[in-house]
Design a protein around this nucleic acid. Structure first.
Length: 711
DNA sequence: GACCTGCTGCGGGCTG
């Protein structure tokens, strides 16, 4: 039987009414597999290949929606995606009399109440809203979900290797446990890096299969190079960028909010000078949501005019903004999935090409970009390193479980968490020690054998900030004529009378109210990009190795323009004198009068761990991860090897070294929202796991072959 | 040399 024939009559009717002449490959295989087996499936295919329908056509065929209770739960990382998908799924359900309910922080209270009163159909939700449901309506969980047949997780790669993913996994376990339902899991994604870790979502890796449509969209790609002139972006780059964009419908991704503001402002100025259109927009998280929605809507509804949206990763995932002709990346992305997702934003219409231009402003970004593109051509996607020891999320879920049960016997809590596959790397001893520490800190209390949230703990769990596992920065609202333009962190540059760019316009600060966190502004003529704070970023080992491989090969790449080619030649010649042959183990080391520089070409974590070892040995050192360097005071190569060998013994002493580091500077744990409540031993483990990579560093240093410049 | 994500329940006042 063909996949089409397996579908129910109303679904077939829907398909013919849509005028689809055939099903897409991923839809064919998903329909067949979902309807004829009882496995879980991860559907992997490029953007705009009909993955949502691939999941829902068979689900709508198989599930009996006349039954009481929610039948299908769709989980998405973004509210905006839920709102888009709501329209599509509602349309699919038009003739089927199935209720579709949005459940997130901005969804209407009345539709939530309606669902509680009469649970049925399909519910679209975020992990945080699910968390809130467990906290505040735990007694409704069995009533809502005891008949649940499917959970669909959209953009599942987005959760992989993240704290939000561990939280979601724990919530999936809790749904199953509390509702006693036996749902199947369908995950959707365009960019799956680590299949094994994604298969663990839902806790049944053996019965979770991957269906993959490997076809990629034809992409015309061009690398350009405009060297930075020290004082920021080269003016020639702006001119070229303007030529590329002003007649097309394009997205520009410059990697930071500050650069988004700078570039949009500049392009707008060039356009106004030539009396051309002014459809240049800035789009990032610090611009007010209403303004962002206006821009998204402009792009979606305005099908004729050219426009350019300059954005951060806010427009990286599949939010519907209509058709885009061109995607532009300024300097390299930090991983492969990110570049593929961004490229996927263009040419979404069937048969349309993706047109992509990558600009580079220095040779290291150029090299990183070539490495990322070459790995993508090989079908490789680097994955985020999975969090092995999620002790901080364990605290969060511990508090959430106790809250939702209004107290629980100690033995029951221990068993509950031991069964929770989100924490299968945590032992019984770990859980007990962490629980005891929460009791000692007066966040929990114990009466008889029952664990309860204490008065101090109530402040934590009853805050509306409790439901998410990530921290949010403290921001000041920027207000112009009673309208909120956006929000900014209070940096030293934000002083009365100073000027700054936001939402592609220049503002002049006339009032700062610290109590209500407001900045009142007036329009001004010229100003600087605002300061945002961010942490460093980690690049994976596979990308760094590929950079060295490209550097020591003489392969040509036909997507490089002449200046990119020239720049690659220059940097290849620079490293040619080291006579490197094996990119796995050969590493250049440069000695000058006072300094020694090791070119690491290793994951950011390995470089950082080597730096930690050197700190431990009181050897002053300095990292530049972009340029792959670790610099020290002059030291002979033979001596370096001796130091490296010593690290094998040192590694056991690092523990107390890091303990001191945390005690003298508690701010290094700022990356974790719940980690500050952990016993010190677990703080150390968390930091070691999150920031360092001792085993791979030792392996790397034990095999490394340092080659000196022979000139 | 970062980016992004999310959010309850209640009570009071107003509208139609």
């Amino acid at each position: 039987m063909s996949s089409y024939d397996l579908l129910s009559e109303p679904i077939r009717k829907y398909i013919s009414e849509q005028g689809w002449d055939q099903l897409r490959p991923i839809q064919n295989s998903a329909i067949h597999k979902i309807l004829t087996t009882s496995n879980n499936y991860i559907l992997s295919a490029k953007t705009a290949s009909g993955k949502t329908e691939a999941a829902f056509l068979p689900i709508l065929t198989q599930v009996d929606f006349s039954k009481q209770g929610v039948q299908v739960l769709y989980i998405s990382p973004l509210i905006a995606l839920i709102n888009d998908q709501f329209k599509r799924i509602e349309q699919l359900c038009e003739y089927l009399d199935i209720s579709v309910t949005k459940w997130h922080g901005e969804a209407s209270q009345s539709s939530k109440k309606r669902l509680i009163k009469n649970p049925s159909g399909i519910v679209l939700i975020t992990p945080e809203s699910l968390e809130a449901m467990f906290c505040n309506r735990s007694h409704e969980i069995p009533h809502l979900f005891s008949n649940l047949k499917f959970i669909v997780i959209d953009e599942i790669h987005y959760f992989d290797g993240t704290n939000r993913g561990i939280q979601l996994n724990s919530l999936l376990y809790r749904i199953k446990k509390e509702s006693r339902s036996n749902f199947r899991l369908i995950g959707l994604s365009a960019t799956i890096g680590n299949i094994d870790s994604i298969k663990k979502m839902g806790g049944q890796p053996e019965s979770t299969k991957v269906l993959r449509d490997p076809t990629s969209k034809p992409t015309s790609i061009l690398f350009k190079f405009f060297k930075d002139n020290g004082g920021g972006i080269n003016i020639e780059l702006y001119k070229d960028l303007f030529k590329e964009t002003y007649t097309s419908r394009s997205l520009i991704f410059p990697n930071s909010r500050g650069k988004v503001e700078e570039i949009t402002h500049y392009l707008l100025k060039i356009s106004q000078k030539g009396n051309l259109h002014s459809n240049f927009f800035a789009h990032h998280s610090s611009i007010d949501k209403s303004l962002r929605e206006y821009i998204e809507n402009f792009a979606k509804t305005n099908t004729v005019s050219p426009f350019t949206i300059c954005c951060t990763s806010t427009l990286e995932l599949g939010i519907d903004i209509g058709s885009i002709d061109k995607v532009i990346q300024i300097d390299s992305t930090f991983n492969i999935a990110s570049l593929i997702q961004r490229i996927g934003r263009s040419g979404r219409k069937q048969g349309q090409h993706s047109s992509v231009v990558l600009y580079h402003t220095n040779s290291w970004f150029l090299l990183q970009s070539i490495a990322i593109w070459e790995l993508n051509l090989l079908g490789i996607i680097d994955s985020k390193s999975t969090s092995f020891y999620p002790f901080d999320i364990l605290i969060h879920q511990m508090l959430s479980i106790i809250r939702s049960k209004n107290g629980i016997l100690k033995i029951d809590l221990l068993n509950y968490l031991l069964e929770d596959y989100a924490f299968d790397s945590c032992t019984k001893e770990d859980i007990e020690l962490i629980l005891n520490s929460l009791l000692e800190q007066d966040i929990l209390e114990i009466t008889g054998q029952e664990i309860l949230i204490s008065l101090k703990g109530e402040y934590l769990v009853n805050s509306k900030d409790f439901y998410s596992v990530f921290e949010s920065e403290s921001m000041y609202k920027v207000i112009y004529q009673n309208n909120v333009i956006g929000e900014l962190p209070l940096s030293p540059a934000l002083k009365l009378d100073n000027k700054f760019l936001l939402a592609s316009r220049v503002w002049h600060i006339v009032l700062i109210e610290h109590e209500s966190k407001k900045i009142v502004v007036q329009a001004a003529k010229s100003g600087d990009k605002p300061t945002f704070y961010g942490n460093g970023i980690d690049i994976s080992h596979i990308i760094k190795e590929k950079m060295l491989e490209i550097l020591i090969s003489n392969q040509n790449y036909d997507y490089l323009d002449s200046s990119s080619l020239e720049e690659l030649d220059i940097i290849r010649k620079e490293f040619g004198s080291y006579k490197l042959t094996n990119y796995k183990i050969d590493r250049p080391v440069k000695h000058s009068a006072s300094k020694t520089v090791i070119y690491m070409f290793s994951s950011s974590k390995i470089t950082r761990t080597l730096s930690l070892f050197l700190d431990f040995n009181n050897i002053k050192n300095d990292i530049n991860d972009l340029e792959n360097t670790l610099s020290l005071d002059r030291i002979q190569t033979a001596e370096l090897y001796r130091v490296f060998i010593k690290f094998n013994k040192d590694s056991q002493f690092l523990y107390s070294f890091i303990e001191n580091l945390i005690e003298s500077n508690p701010n290094i744990l700022d990356f974790t929202k719940w980690g500050k409540y952990l016993p010190i031993k677990y703080k150390v483990k968390l930091l070691l796991n999150e920031y360092y990579d001792i085993q791979n560093t030792l392996d790397f240093l034990n095999t490394i072959n340092l080659l000196e410049n022979l000139d």
